[in-house]
């Protein structure tokens, strides 16, 4: 069996056969963008330092050289301005990729990205679509302080019309980015600064991963752990620890939270009777609370306990390294939640 993931915790390979090679998460995102830009002349990248500096996090390394300044565009530090510009170009037929150095900075572009892009098709009566990808780092990057450590999916997933992709592996990042670029609706693509250097195997052959299809990272019978993005890795670690205690966890990586793959989650919870949702955004009105509500609704007669949730603590992100670690959903919190949900506390 060819290892698709370099992370040994990921036992289930993607269902994509064939040769693979190992690359970093940032390479996976770049490969996806480059492949799509070669394929479709309408696709272009813009953002702060994406061109001449090769991207603040080197995601767009070498892209200026390949595609030229017309398609890899450096912008001023003006998220509201360049987001609005990109949306206008999308309405007129281009397919822009907007890089936010951090999704935390996208808050100043809230009006174009939340009030214009997702509603354009609806408000124009179908005259204008908005095929656009907004991408950047999301979540606590590691001592970046309260204002630069947002998990914006908590806020943005509330808006109808957006698609939200939060990959946890290089292979998913590549397959989902290609799907995002080809999608005719606005897609919020959320990377993690802490995962950019993570290595993983991706298939040599071209592949796309459809939205709304969760991956079962680990099969288990006692408790369903649902997560997306970086905390999936914490769930896998927790599952290893819990397995030694005799608690067999099934770990589901949702991969996209809009659309949300409820059938996979429901089938799993019907099997395990216990569910823990792990979401690194804050708990109040979050993707995690939505998923928990859906599980309660669809699995009511299957549950042996209420759905437990692990989130970031309900405070601004602390700067101190130990506090930040304690604030985030971490392995200890996940283990405690699973033990409680399965009455093994």
């Amino acid at each position: 069996m060819s290892a698709v993931m370099s992370n040994p915790l990921f036992r289930e390979p993607l269902s994509i056969a064939g040769a693979t090679r190992e690359i970093e998460f940032r390479d996976a995102v770049r490969e996806a963008m480059c492949e799509e830009m070669r394929r479709d002349k309408r696709v272009y990248l813009l953002g702060e330092e994406v061109a001449q500096y090769d991207g603040a996090y080197k995601v767009s390394k070498g892209m200026l050289a390949e595609f030229g300044a017309g398609r890899v565009v450096d912008t001023p530090i003006s998220e509201s301005g360049f987001s609005g510009m990109a949306i206008g170009s999308a309405m007129l037929g281009l397919r822009p990729i907007v890089e936010f150095m951090s999704w935390s900075f996208a808050l100043v572009a809230a009006d174009p990205i939340l009030n214009n892009a997702p509603k354009m098709l609806y408000m124009s009566g179908g005259q204008f679509g908005c095929p656009i990808v907004f991408r950047g780092n999301d979540g606590a990057g590691g001592q970046l302080g309260s204002t630069h450590s947002w998990s914006v999916e908590g806020l943005f997933s509330n808006v109808p019309g957006v698609k939200i992709v939060i990959p946890s592996t290089p292979a998913d990042a590549k397959g989902l980015m290609k799907t995002a670029i080809r999608d005719d609706d606005p897609v919020f693509f959320m990377e993690s600064e802490r995962l950019l250097s993570m290595k993983g195997h991706v298939p040599e052959a071209e592949y796309l991963i459809p939205f709304g299809h969760a991956a079962i990272r680990r099969a288990g019978k006692d408790c369903t752990l649902c997560s997306w993005g970086r905390p999936v890795h914490f769930c896998m670690e927790a599952a290893e620890i819990l397995a030694k205690e005799g608690i067999d966890c099934e770990v589901i990586d949702l991969r996209t939270i809009r659309p949300l793959d409820l059938p996979t989650v429901i089938a799993s919870v019907r099997k395990t009777s216990a569910a823990v949702v792990v979401d690194q955004s804050w708990s109040f009105a979050s993707p995690g609370s939505e998923l928990a509500a859906q599980i309660h609704r669809h699995c009511f007669d299957d549950l042996d306990n209420f759905v437990h949730r692990v989130h970031s603590d309900d405070v601004p992100t602390p700067y101190a390294v130990a506090l930040e670690q304690e604030y985030l959903p971490n392995v200890r919190k996940i283990c405690e939640a699973v033990r409680s949900a399965t009455y093994r506390a």
């Binding site: 299957d302 549950l303 692990v310 989130h311 603590d313 409680s340």
Partner: peptide, 26 residues
Amino acid sequence: ASVQTETSHGMEEFGATTARMRVSPV
């Protein structure tokens, strides 16, 4: 210590529920 990790059984937080029989749905 964590306020978000729901490891309590969720009943004592808002006072005792009624004394009726407690059975999990499943």
